[in-house]
Simulated assay, not measured.
Amino acid sequence: MYNKGTIIPGLILFVLFVTFPIWFNGLTTAGDLPKPELPPGGEKQCVMPADYMRANHMQLLNEWRDNVLRDGDREILEINGKKYPKGLQMACMTCHSQKEKFCDSCHTYAAVDPYCWDCHLTPNEAGSKEAMH
């Protein structure tokens, strides 16, 4: 009546098929995380530790944006004796000036399209506009 010999193999195939994206993705991308490059002579010390910045840089940038644009708070932060103005161009891009190597490598990997560049000029565009003046 029932084909009992196909139930277990059928369940195994079903589980493999349903979980395929999870284990396939884990096997193929395990060691491929990009390592953003700092430009030669770039600071080794950031406003926060690297692990924190990898996970939370967008929240920090959003907080700075809200402080500066909405609250008018342009307080310069001093961390470990170094002063950092709040701002993408004034703080972050002074060290991380190679957007393609630093920002884009991780954002492309994570399939994230940040909206920073909707308002800010990329470092190359900023340099060319300053050269025109």
Rank of each mutant, 00 (worst) to 15 (best):
M53D: 06
H57M: 01
G31E: 13
A55I: 00
L13S: 12
R54D: 05
L61Y: 12
D32N: 07
R54H: 11
V47L: 02
T29L: 05
E43S: 10
G26W: 07
M48I: 07
D51C: 03
A55C: 01
D51M: 03
I12W: 00
A50K: 12
C46M: 14
N62M: 14
L27F: 15
Y52K: 10
K44S: 07
V18L: 05
F24K: 14
V47S: 01
P36E: 03
A50L: 11
I22T: 11
L33Q: 11
F20C: 08
L33C: 12
V15C: 09
V15L: 10
W23P: 10
I22V: 13
I22Q: 11
P40Y: 13
L38E: 09
L13P: 12
C46Y: 14
T28I: 06
F17L: 04
T29H: 01
L16D: 00
G42K: 10
L33S: 12
F20A: 08
P36T: 00
F24E: 11
R54K: 08
P40M: 15
P39C: 14
W23S: 08
N62S: 15
G41N: 07
L16C: 03
N56M: 02
P40A: 15
W23C: 10
K44L: 04
V15H: 04
F17S: 10
Y52Q: 08
K44C: 03
P34T: 03
N25F: 12
K35R: 09
N25L: 10
M53G: 04
E43L: 09
N25P: 07
A30N: 10
P49E: 01
Q59K: 05
Y52D: 08
T29Q: 02
L13V: 11
L33I: 12
V15I: 11
H57L: 00
V18W: 02
K35Y: 10
L38D: 07
V18I: 05
L27E: 13
P40D: 14
E37K: 04
Y52H: 09
M58R: 15
C46H: 13
N56Y: 02
L38Y: 09
L38M: 14
G42A: 13
P49T: 00
M53Y: 02
V47G: 01
F20R: 02
A50G: 06
G31C: 15
L27H: 13
G26F: 08
I12L: 00
P40I: 15
G41A: 09
Q59N: 04
P36W: 00
L16G: 02
L13R: 04
T29Y: 02
D32V: 08
L16E: 01
F20L: 06
